[in-house]
Design a binder for these strands. Sequence first.
DNA 1: TCTGGGGTCCTAGGACCC
DNA 2: TCTGGGGTCCTAGGACCC
Length: 487
Amino acid sequence: MTGGTPVAGETLPGAGDEGDDAPDRVVCHVDMDCFYASCERLRHDDLDGEPVVVGMGYEPGESIGAVATASYEAREFGVESAMPVSEALALLPRRADADPDDPDAPDPEETGRYVPVDLDFYEDVAAEVKAVLRDCADTRREVSIDEAYLDVTDRTSWAAAGGGGNPADGDDDPADPPPSGAAGPAEARTLAEGYARHVKDRIEREAGVPASVGVAPNMSAAKVASDADKPDGLVVVPPGSVAEFLAPLPTADVHGVGPVTEETLSELGIDTAGDLAAADRDRLADALGERGPELSRRAAGDDDREVTPTGLPKSLSRESALPTTADESTKRETVSALAADVARRARERGCLYRTIGIKAVEPPFDVNTRARSLPGPVDDPDLVEEVALDLLAEFDDARVRKLGVRVSKLDFAETDQATLGGFDAGGGDGGDGRDREAAPEARGGPDGGKLTDWVDGPPDRGDGDGPTGGRDRRDADEGQATLGDWD
DNA sequence: TCTGGGGTCCTAGGACCC
DNA sequence: TCTGGGGTCCTAGGACCC
């Protein structure tokens, strides 16, 4: 099986195996290990080696909130992300509650340190991480505060480290190196692995926090690889080994398979990524919609998405839990505060919005959303509040445990967009569904327009109704760089 | 145990237009 | 006038991710 003798340069342009002579990409997925807890350790030495729980909505001494991040030591006690702090405390009591002299108090050895989330600080640390990533890769997609994809194809390659040859030339040649952890026989190591280690080491050295890195020829495999050996992992999956690497993993390890999909797949007799890859895709489509076949392709190691920069946000929202209440003024005050905050953030980010919505969660966990679209994009905090309160009226008698406000159909119009012109007074859009620009009076607010009418619901749904015409106003959502997938 | 908060994408049904 | 199809937008809900 290892008798193949790959020869560099043997693959001629145009002779690629998949109708594409581009070299295999080298994609890294960088995933910070229990990032919030690592950040806390960065500034509090005494947390080193201790079970650390970072709680969202948590306040010292209280048992409210949920676990945002648990350190690996805390996970040993069963503490998990998204768990209510009260439940985490049952598994892992607070250190402050330990008392060696009190037989009823917890053993200090079996307690943990609880700290509230401090997002501002974590963002400062994340900025240092990003600076390293920027230095290491021109093509990046930052997925969240603690996670990013890098396309480093132009910085390194799948060639064997320390020698000539090209063991990973992109085909399914059995001579290609197998998936490897950081260790492995030197002859199996690739330049890509060395580069990934370099990135990982620089993050640790320059930002002071540990990361796990996965390296593979595509994004989804790199993502799974970074998860495969956490924390502090480095897992390399060379071209030709992707399917073999993924096959034994449970379906839940495939990005995009959550609890519901896992259960659906299980009912179909599909338990591993290998099963999923081999499953009949029409059958998957029947059970899961278009997502099904796509998950199957990912499970098979087939993913040609480009690493593209994160686009502008598509919505902004704020929500907050509250003690379950039916009290109308409490609900209205909460929504007003959330609306003000969302509107402020939108303004800070220089974006207009065209849809305003609310969320009302009734116990036990009944999520209701309501939304109303405006005739044109606005930046109008008063209108956000008015519309949100109006939508809330439907829930005047409801008991709610959580309320939220959201703006969407965002428009990051630059000031120079105002010079585009092209709006027509006639109200029509010429029939091609494309307007160049919103009616100007719809931009700044309700003045001169009829936006306030919308507080009480859409006015006349007639077409081409005067100043509010213009449905699609832009040729494309430029700058969005959407992938059409679920990253 | 009374399950954070911030997002993304997909789907389905209805309205409406051509 | 009847019938029908295609396309887009809107709203609501759901699954998933970090």
